[in-house]
Design a protein around this nucleic acid. Structure first.
Lengths: 219, 219
DNA sequence: CGTTCATCGTTCGGTTCCGAACGGTTTGTC
DNA sequence: GACAAACCGTTCGGAACCGAACGATGAACG
């Protein structure tokens, strides 16, 4: 989600400040929460209320969590699957928001714009349909991102020499310069976010995520 | 991301079919790809081109991947961090798209609408600011989702008895009925997507993701 | 060659979403 | 008790995104 669709207007992207921003609380208490291994999101609200107003709510924490457990135990639920999948989405959002604010916004880049630049940077001279597939966006969206990036002088496009339908994308020298200066910053943040994981955990997590992607994409 | 903002118009959400949809290729070849443990996305494009046109591209696969390795090895990059973080985002998108198509669309629900319903279902009688925090959306977005869900008779709202600024949200009987019928479907898909992971892997992955969330949110 | 069909990138309408601004309510301070 | 500051949910403008429709090009077949 970072684009301008038609009518490329440069230099307006990535405005994620931190005012009304999406906030989110904290950990869960394994002793109370019915989730597996403290790895769920069920008690974030509890912590919030707990911290905020002393005890003004009508239902106590215990009663509420009891209700959660009962509601879920009534049905037969795969709690560990829930913990994994729901945290995938939560993590993705958290990462994206953080990266946009800390790394991308100062360079006036949006997330999608960044991903597109990255793909072109890595593959150089790549057809736009492949860029869209790699970046995980639709063709229509890519057109807009393209125009934005072109108007900022970061990306070039030329028609495929053998097929006039296709379009080849590549980075301008300015774009290349941008990437080689920004990507280390980006990667540093990636490293920071995964620094609590040892190497085995990183590899295992990446492998697990790939398994999920595989299941989700062809099923 | 699933909402209607202002002017609640019911019954038009969740239209994700599969026509021009976001496609995405396949695995990477560990023998060739410079990533760790086949857990990256760097060779998806390669596989695509490989499968599509026999060998019409100008740079061979080997040359391309060599270029990737060189470009990345020129800088000092934490490849395992990159593998983890980039796959988080990819997995989240894949999961969301799949769930929207298979589970939510038949019930005319959007992803965000679903998450909001879920939060209210679990916590019952919850203040809207907490719903927004739990669901990971902004207050403004929640207002729109609220209206949509209210106009469909799934959600009730009432003013907080002790504080006229606050609003308490809860599910109508119709909303409760919907949740208890749809959530098992949803959870079944969650289970399906993580079925290639054994229990230890699920727990470990969930734990790793929480660590990432923690880092991303307060840093 | 001319026709048909697949495929490419673009256009366009509609939806989702964020963030800043706003009015209304409560709390704190003199 | 008035006044200011903090906080709540809503409104509103604008960006980002998808998916269907479109025009143009290329390939297959007679």
């Amino acid at each position: 989600m970072a684009d301008k669709q038609r009518s490329a207007r440069p230099g307006t992207g990535a405005k994620r400040k931190a005012a009304d921003a999406v906030v989110s609380p904290d950990d869960c208490d394994p002793a109370r929460c019915p989730c597996d291994d403290a790895a769920c999101s069920l008690s974030r609200y509890v912590r919030t209320t707990q911290a905020a107003n002393g005890d003004e709510d009508h239902h106590t924490l215990e009663a509420t969590e009891q209700a959660v457990a009962e509601r879920l135990s009534g049905l037969s639920i795969d709690m560990s699957a829930m913990a994994v999948i729901s945290n995938v989405y939560r993590a993705a959002n958290a990462v994206r928001n953080h990266v946009e604010r800390t790394v991308l916004a100062p360079h006036d880049l949006t997330w999608t714009g960044w991903v597109v630049l990255w793909v072109i940077w890595i593959w150089g001279d790549i057809e736009s349909r492949h860029v869209a597939a790699e970046a995980g966006i639709s063709k229509g969206t890519l057109t807009g991102v393209q125009n934005t990036l072109m108007s900022r002088g970061l990306v070039k496009r030329r028609v495929h020499p053998d097929d006039a339908r296709r379009v080849l994308l590549s980075l301008t020298p300015k774009g290349q310069k941008l990437m080689s200066s920004v990507f280390p910053e980006f990667n540093a943040v990636e490293a920071l976010m995964s620094e609590d994981l040892d190497d085995d955990a990183k590899l295992a997590t990446a492998r697990a995520l790939r398994a999920i992607v595989k299941k989700a994409e062809n099923a």
